[in-house]
């Protein structure tokens, strides 16, 4: 691991809560690590488990997924459905030996700017300790 290596954390957030929460963190001038790359989706229910796979394939060291708290979904039940999907995905990744410490799920509302900045900092810190996800990245093989 090179000394100035910085983890890449792909972050999928819903439009209505977590994205607004991230926005609030910004306007409130809470500092958080610049390691995340935010990708906004309409709802956490839109976050296909394949997004996680795709992020790792393209070089992510961790994936952070966040949406509205249960009961707060803009579409009433998108996050409840997402929760079941993520339950299954997490178990499957675990069974396959993927390092599930690198797949973080959270609920973060539009008013939780402080939670969002803390979350990002904590995740970044923990991934820094784990180092780059070389196991997964080594799967990219162009010849046999």
């Amino acid at each position: 691991m090179s000394e100035n290596w910085e983890p890449k954390i792909i972050t999928f957030v819903c439009n209505w809560c977590t994205y607004a929460g991230a926005d609030l963190a910004g306007t409130s001038r809470f500092k958080y690590a610049s390691n995340i790359r935010i990708i906004k989706t309409p709802c956490s229910g839109r976050i296909d488990p394949m997004f996680i796979v795709s992020a790792f394939e393209k070089g992510a060291d961790a994936v952070l997924i966040s949406g509205c708290h249960p009961g707060d979904c803009h579409y009433n039940e998108g996050n409840y459905n997402a929760r079941r999907k993520f339950t299954m995905m997490k178990r499957l990744l675990d069974t396959l030996g993927v390092d599930t410490r690198r797949v973080v799920f959270a609920w973060c509302s539009a008013s939780e700017g402080i939670k969002f900045s803390r979350l990002v900092n904590e995740v970044t810190e923990s991934i820094k300790k784990l180092g780059p996800y070389t196991d997964y990245h080594s799967l990219n093989q162009e010849e046999r």
Binding site: P49, M50, V53, E57, M89, L92, L96, S138, L139, Q141
Partner: peptide
């Protein structure tokens, strides 16, 4: 979404998606 080559990446992604779609 899934590499169609039977390389480690494609094989891993394919088997994730196959199992997950049967969850």
């Amino acid at each position: 979404w899934i590499d169609t080559r039977s390389n480690p990446r494609g094989n891993f992604a394919w088997n994730i998606v196959r199992a997950l779609h049967l969850a």
